[in-house]
């Protein structure tokens, strides 16, 4: 007799991920599917895809899904959730999508306290289009549109989304996590689970900011990219719970 000790979550399809080796997206996809499975929501979930590397997430989940216009997933999720308040609704967005072109939509969905969950992947770069500067690119970090490194006097400063959104009254739960180590991955899963549970309880908007990597566009090996997350990204984007209405925070 064999015992199953590890299996693919029911929420993931058999499609092979198109992401680059070492990319954090695959980890986060799996964590979402595990949480949804555990909550018994696999057939009751709608996921909204961004523009960016994760545009193809409809290929990877068995959930109903929609390819959103760049940055507009929070608006479209508002439409979906208001029509189907009983569904678990997730937007999955990168930093260019959420913090640049879609800043208005995320701020207002959060302010309205829309009862969906946003998984925000912050890897400080535009991946899909080939390494351009993102709103979260660190000062000094190189990008194809900031080739000598981001100069804050020229390019402006990075935006800390969790801090910014936690100033609003609409969000129920906001946490920043990372996927650079097994311990952080476990914490990431707990945060995603909590965010989804807050949604199910109808408490308001929830967001998990995942500090992730981009080995390809950062020009690093997978291992070096994870070290960069630990050494450079997390100090600029401190991990932790920024909003939790159950804890009075």
């Amino acid at each position: 007799m064999s015992t199953t000790i590890f299996k693919k979550p029911n929420g993931l399809t058999d499609r092979k991920l198109h992401y680059c080796p070492g990319c954090g997206h695959g980890i986060v996809h799996r964590l979402i599917a595990e949480c949804i499975d555990e909550m018994g929501e696999t057939e009751n979930t709608v996921i909204l895809a961004p523009v960016g590397c994760a545009v193809f997430i409809p290929n990877y989940f068995v959930y109903d899904s929609i390819h959103c216009a760049h940055g507009r997933a929070p608006a479209s999720a508002t439409g979906v959730k208001r029509v189907h308040p009983d569904k678990t609704v997730i937007t999955y967005q990168g930093d260019g999508d959420l913090a640049s072109i879609g800043m208005a939509e995320i701020v207002h969905a959060a302010a309205r306290g829309e009862k969906f969950t946003t998984i925000f992947i912050n890897n400080g770069i535009y991946g899909m289009t080939g390494g351009q500067m993102a709103p979260t690119t660190l000062p000094g970090m190189k990008a194809t549109t900031a080739q000598n490194g981001r100069d804050v006097h020229v390019n402006g400063n990075p935006i800390r989304i969790s801090e910014l959104l936690s100033s609003l009254d609409g969000p129920a739960y906001i946490e920043r996590v990372a996927v650079d180590s097994p311990a952080h991955v476990i914490k990431t899963k707990a945060a995603i689970k909590k965010a989804l549970q807050y949604q199910k309880e109808g408490l308001g908007f929830s967001l998990v900011e995942v500090v992730s990597n981009c080995p390809t566009n950062w020009g690093m090996s997978a291992v070096k990219a994870m070290e960069f997350v630990k050494d450079k990204m997390i100090p600029y984007y401190p991990l932790g719970v920024y909003k939790d209405i159950k804890e009075g925070k």
Partner: peptide, 13 residues
């Protein structure tokens, strides 16, 4: 922009 994209979600739903 948000309004029409809300329709994209609501109509899609």
């Amino acid at each position: 922009v948000a309004a029409i994209n809300m329709l994209y979600g609501a109509g899609g739903a």
